[in-house]
């Protein structure tokens, strides 16, 4: 579809960017001219702008992102390495699934952030405790989505590969894994959200650095401009990951996005 001289893509971008800009303008306008502004309750975009400059120039933002990002990367990588094979094997070997199901269901259903204080006690406030918390939160979407992906593998394709002489190994690598991949990417989207929760909660408890700690600290200091910037940064990080994964999904499984659209 075309809108006048512009392509749908540009119109989409312009409307999206315009709406976000408008949102901040209205926010600023309301707090400057309509309501009385109390900096202890809320902030406004102009103050956030100043805070952004401050955080970037002082280098604090990058440092905090690095501190928080490191356990995130480790925890997430561990979740991928453990979660995917476990889910795939559970999906393909029913007995393994039967045995592990009670544990996994209980752990997935329960609020694992409740374990945070325990993990901090056991592993300290540093990188180790946070990595383990992020791993625990992020691993389940990988397990369950890989599992669901394997359960939904088309038996026809299994028969095709078998009939052409494929062995168990071929079934895994030529049918099960490729057809499970889109499910795994969808799982990664959920895992990222949970992983970010893991960072923040981990750093809420007694950490002395990192973006989650900064968030709490600025809140305690009533530096709401800085605090909002931290929130915004987390949002942006989450959006970048989500969009990136959607693009990855399109690239890996073009047939699937065609089916669902």
């Amino acid at each position: 579809m075309r809108f006048g001289v512009l392509s749908e893509r540009s119109v989409r971008f312009l409307l999206g960017a315009g709406a976000v800009t408008g949102f901040f303008l209205v926010w600023e306008f309301l707090l400057t001219f309509v309501f009385t502004f109390n900096p202890f309750f809320i902030t406004k975009p102009s103050l956030m702008w100043d805070a952004t400059g401050d955080l970037i120039l002082s280098g604090e933002l990058w440092k905090d992102l690095y501190i928080s990002g490191t356990p995130f990367v480790f925890g997430f990588a561990a979740a991928v390495v453990v979660g995917i094979p476990l889910g795939v094997v559970m999906g393909w070997r029913r007995r393994v699934a039967f045995a592990l199901d009670p544990f996994l269901t209980a752990l997935y259903a329960s609020p694992l952030v409740a374990l945070a204080p325990l993990l901090i006690v056991m592993f300290g406030v540093g990188i180790k405790g946070k990595t383990i918390l992020i791993f625990l939160l992020a691993v389940f979407p990988f397990i369950f989505n890989a599992f669901a992906g394997v359960r939904s593998v088309d038996t026809l394709l299994i028969n095709v590969v078998r009939s052409l002489g494929g062995k168990e190994r071929d079934l895994y690598f030529k049918v099960i894994l490729p057809s499970t991949l889109p499910y795994i990417v969808a799982g990664a989207r959920i895992a990222i959200g949970r992983g970010i929760v893991g960072i923040i909660v981990g750093e809420f408890y007694a950490a002395s650095e990192g973006i989650g700690h900064a968030l709490i600290w600025f809140g305690d200091m009533y530096q709401l401009g800085h605090m909002f910037v931290c929130i915004l940064v987390l949002m942006i990080v989450a959006v970048i990951f989500t969009v990136g994964l959607r693009k990855a999904e399109l690239a890996i499984a073009p047939w699937r996005t065609q089916e669902t659209r």
């Binding site: 088309d154 394709l157 095709v160 490729p178």
Partner: peptide
Amino acid sequence: GPGVERAMVFQEFGLLPW
């Protein structure tokens, strides 16, 4: 079991979509 001297053409094609 399956063998190289036999091959099947399936009703629903059974092509690997990837």
